[in-house]
Amino acid sequence: METIAQLGIAPEDITKVLVAGDWHGNTRWMRQVLACAARDGYKAIIHVGDLKVLWPDEYPDFPEPGCFTADLATDLEELGLVLIFADGNHDAHPILRKLTLNNDGFGVISDRLLYAPRGHRWSIRGVRFGALGGAYSIDKAFLTPGWDWFEGEEVVPSDVETLGSATLDVLITHDVPAGIDVETTLRLPEAIERESYIVRSLLRDAVRITEPKLVFSGHWHQRRTGLMPGMETRAHVLDREFHDGNLVSLDLATLAVEEYKPV
């Protein structure tokens, strides 16, 4: 991965990465995680979406100190970390899609803060990653278009086509592929359940096509794990910020997954 090498991080020095669930633009949690990750020898973090960078109140002037994106970019630089993120549903999709792509195909916010567009692939230490962010907002009726809800949040068939059929080791999604049970305390209208399931079924299709060993997701704010039906793919659903299960450590040599607490 050229981007990491250009930043003075030798790929061979990356033996493990952190994988993170939703952070929702929370600066305090972000700083706690980054400080612990740097202390514990991590060089890279992969985020499954709802990171909430470049929000309308800080775009395009995000370099101003005090906003989440600026603080995140600054801390990554000071700590020598790289953060790669997929988009969630609560992300500013039109802004992310305008980002300039670097030579590795990532959207660049800073040298160390990189957006993985839907269908993008990359590798670290020979581990093949793919990103398929996006989800349906089941709370859309309570959100304001252009402020905390944005067009383009849902996974569509062309995103799956962009990802392609070549085998992956790790697939990063925001929503959870159909076939992995999730729980909600909300009583959802049938129409909303149907729209949500369309996205989840597309993600299931992507898993079946690319046959990754691991899938990491978020969105539902709970920690769950299970095998995709009829497959050897293990899915890990990560919890939200300030909760146990928001972070796991992925060993790049063995693809072993361990819980990680930033303490």
Rank of each mutant, 00 (worst) to 15 (best):
N103E: 08
G146R: 14
D57T: 10
A5G: 14
Q32S: 12
I95D: 07
T100Y: 09
Y260L: 06
S158K: 12
V127W: 13
L227M: 08
L113A: 11
I95C: 08
R208M: 07
K140G: 05
I124N: 11
V17W: 10
Y136K: 04
P11N: 06
L214Y: 01
G133I: 03
A253D: 15
D251F: 04
Q32D: 04
R208I: 04
A10N: 14
W29Y: 13
E12Q: 14
I14G: 13
G134I: 12
P60E: 05
P65F: 13
V263L: 14
K261T: 06
L99Q: 05
R28Y: 00
I138Y: 15
N246E: 00
V248N: 06
I45V: 09
T254E: 05
G164F: 06
E259T: 14
V237N: 15
F106E: 00
Q6E: 14
H93F: 15
R223A: 12
R39N: 11
H24S: 03
E241T: 09
L163N: 01
T69K: 07
E258F: 00
F85C: 04
D75N: 10
A70C: 11
N246M: 00
L203M: 09
T184N: 09
H47E: 02
Y197D: 00
K43I: 04
V160N: 02
V127D: 14
L79R: 08
T210I: 00
A191K: 03
T225C: 14
G107A: 03
F68E: 01
T225M: 15
E64L: 09
V182H: 04
G21S: 07
D40R: 13
F216L: 11
K261A: 15
D75W: 07
A135I: 12
G41W: 11
T100F: 11
R224E: 09
G8K: 10
F62I: 00
L214I: 12
L252C: 14
G21D: 03
L99S: 07
T27D: 10
K140P: 03
F142V: 01
G164M: 08
A166T: 12
G80I: 01
R234Y: 11
W122Q: 05
R223D: 05
Q32L: 12
R39L: 11
R128H: 13
L76K: 15
V263Q: 13
G41T: 13
R204W: 00
E211G: 11
A70K: 06
A178D: 02
G245K: 08
K43C: 06
F62M: 00
I209Y: 04
D159R: 11
G133L: 05
L186Y: 09
D71H: 02
D239Q: 09
G66V: 02
H221I: 01
T100I: 12
G130P: 14
S123Y: 15
N89S: 08
L83C: 14
R125N: 15
L18A: 11
A141G: 07
L7V: 09
R224A: 13
F150K: 05
Y260Q: 06
L51Q: 01
R187H: 09
V160A: 05
E195M: 07
G230R: 03
T69W: 07
H243R: 14
L255S: 04
F106M: 02
T184L: 09
C67W: 07
I198Q: 04
S201C: 01
G146M: 13
T144V: 05
